[in-house]
Structures are given as C-alpha cells and as structure tokens.
C-alpha cells in the first residue's frame, strides 16, 4: 500500500521513503507555467493600469510558483543515469544545480 502525500510530509518524515514520479511537464514546461502564474497574479493586482512589476520575478517567487503548479521538490543529492547516454534527459533542471550525476 502506498499513500499520496504532499511535499511537506515527504520532506519531514525521515522514517519513510518517499517516491516522487516526475514527467516532462515538471521540467521546462513547469517553469513556463510558474512564470505565467506570476504574471497573471500580478496583473490581477494591477487591474487598473495593467502594470506588471518586474521585481516580483525573482528566484524565490519562481520557487513559490513552481510549488503552486505542483513541480517544486527537493534538490537531489545524486542523479543516476542508466542506459547508453550520459545526459539528464530533461530531468527538472531547476533542481539540479549541485546534484552529483553518475
């Protein structure tokens, strides 16, 4: 039996293993969705002038938006690549800054 959990539970339950299933939608597509979400929210707040504040687009805001669109997870310590290639094959790059790749 497996139980679906949210990210908070997954990160704060050291006694259990968490399996995360990712797809291409969690990669570049998710970043585009997150950016879009920020734009839409910001435009809602500035309905009158339709002004877009460029300062709201910073790394923490993008992280938050990725969480809302369901694509924000922990940065892995290790990425194992199987097969004849040596590439991360579109794994969500936002989370691969300091991941060891083997």
């Amino acid at each position: 039996m497996v139980q679906e959990v949210n990210e908070v539970v997954a990160l704060h339950d050291p006694d259990h293993m968490t399996l995360e299933f990712l797809s291409h939608a969690d990669g570049r597509e998710a970043v585009a969705k997150a950016a879009n979400l920020i734009f839409v929210e910001n435009l809602k707040q500035h309905k009158l002038g339709g002004e877009l504040d460029l300062q709201i687009l910073l790394e923490p805001q993008l992280n938050e938006a990725l969480q809302i669109v369901g694509s924000k997870g922990p940065e892995p310590d290790l990425l194992l690549v199987y097969g004849p290639v040596r590439s991360h094959l579109g794994f969500p790059a936002w989370r691969l800054r300091y991941t060891e790749i083997m």
Binding site: V2, V5, D15, T18, L19, F21, S23
Partner: peptide, 11 residues
C-alpha cells in the same frame, strides 16, 4: 508531479 510515501521504515 506525484509524491508517494511507502509504509516501510528505512533501516
């Protein structure tokens, strides 16, 4: 993205 927790305590 789907996260699942397995009810198997890690050793």
């Amino acid at each position: 993205m789907l996260s699942l927790t397995l009810p198997i305590p890690l050793l």
